[in-house]
Simulated assay, not measured.
Amino acid sequence: MIGARVVVKRGGREEAEKPFWISFADLMSALMVLFLVVMGVALLAVTRTVSEKEKKEAQHEKNIELILQRFEDAAKRYDGISVHKDRQVIDFGQRARFAFGDWRLTAQQEEVLRKFVPEIIKLANDDLGKSILKRIVIEGYTDKRGSYLANLNLSLQRSQKVLCTMFASTGPNLLDDSQKADVRNLFFVGGYSFNAAKENDEESRRVEMRLEFLGIDEKRSPPPVDIGDNFGECALR
């Protein structure tokens, strides 16, 4: 027995280590699966967000096209008034054309304006109008003759005269107080001197109404504090 050989099994250590390495591999596999799941959810969320944004943008453009078409349909009932969809403006043509150096409108021009403005108010205050139309800017223009500052003042006077026409207290087709309040809240005045002049001087002396639209998810600002029917008198005579 003295010379008996002692056999040592060296595989014990390797066998003891096997469970650890198997567990580590499983852990890495689980982490990889978790990572893929998280990335999948994140990509899905981003895709959904982009899709919703694109959907809102498409609907927004559709609403703008729809209300422009409604304005165009209304304008067709009035000779000389047209809507330029590409520029998003209402062009009154001869219905709001001025003499050289003058800001006054004829009685007939004022009458036509007061006939058409209620159409604008009606479209602006329906569900579609409230959701998409922000405001309407009355833009006056002049021809290229005269100085820049003189023409700038003249263009502002022309815009102001159109607005004053809506608040007239005498003459045919007068607006009622409710319509005048809508005009006060919705219309703004702008002057552009001889910028964007037309091909000839006569066509340049004009007024247009530019439609401004709300952005996506933007809401129309509430009207200012109610000041009743104190509309005042036009300073232009």
Rank of each mutant, 00 (worst) to 15 (best):
M166Y: 04
Q88G: 01
A235V: 03
I132W: 01
R77M: 13
T165P: 01
I227Y: 14
K134R: 10
Q69T: 14
D73H: 08
A25N: 04
K85H: 14
D217W: 10
K76P: 03
G190I: 02
F20C: 04
G228E: 06
R48E: 14
T165G: 03
R145I: 09
R97S: 15
F188T: 10
N153W: 06
E14S: 13
V117R: 02
C234F: 00
R97V: 09
I136Y: 06
L149F: 12
C234P: 00
S51G: 09
Q59P: 03
R210V: 13
V189P: 00
R77I: 07
D176E: 11
S155P: 05
P222E: 14
K62Q: 15
M166F: 07
E111F: 06
C234E: 00
V7D: 12
G93L: 09
E17V: 04
N63P: 04
N200A: 00
E202I: 11
W103I: 06
H60V: 05
D182L: 12
N230E: 12
E15G: 04
A99Q: 12
G228L: 08
F35G: 11
R205F: 02
F100D: 15
E203C: 00
K18R: 11
R135D: 06
Q94I: 15
K180Y: 07
F194M: 07
G93H: 09
K161H: 06
R135V: 03
F167K: 00
D143L: 01
A42N: 09
R87N: 12
G80R: 02
L31W: 08
R77G: 11
L113P: 05
E17N: 09
M1W: 10
F116D: 02
E139N: 15
P222N: 13
A4T: 13
F213S: 02
I81G: 05
A42K: 11
T106P: 09
Q157F: 05
Y78F: 14
E72T: 12
E218R: 08
R184L: 03
L31P: 03
G171Y: 00
R135M: 02
A96D: 07
V41C: 11
K144Y: 09
D226I: 04
V6Q: 10
K198H: 03
P224Y: 08
K122T: 08
I81H: 03
V89T: 12
I22K: 15
I138D: 02
V7G: 06
F213P: 03
S131A: 11
Y141R: 04
M1H: 11
G215E: 07
F24V: 13
K134A: 06
L133K: 01
E233K: 01
E110Y: 04
R95C: 11
A4S: 14
G232N: 00
A197F: 11
N195V: 08
G191I: 02
R77Y: 13
A75H: 05
E233H: 00
Q160Y: 06
L36H: 07
F188E: 14
A181T: 14
N125C: 03
E61F: 08
M39Y: 08
A197T: 09
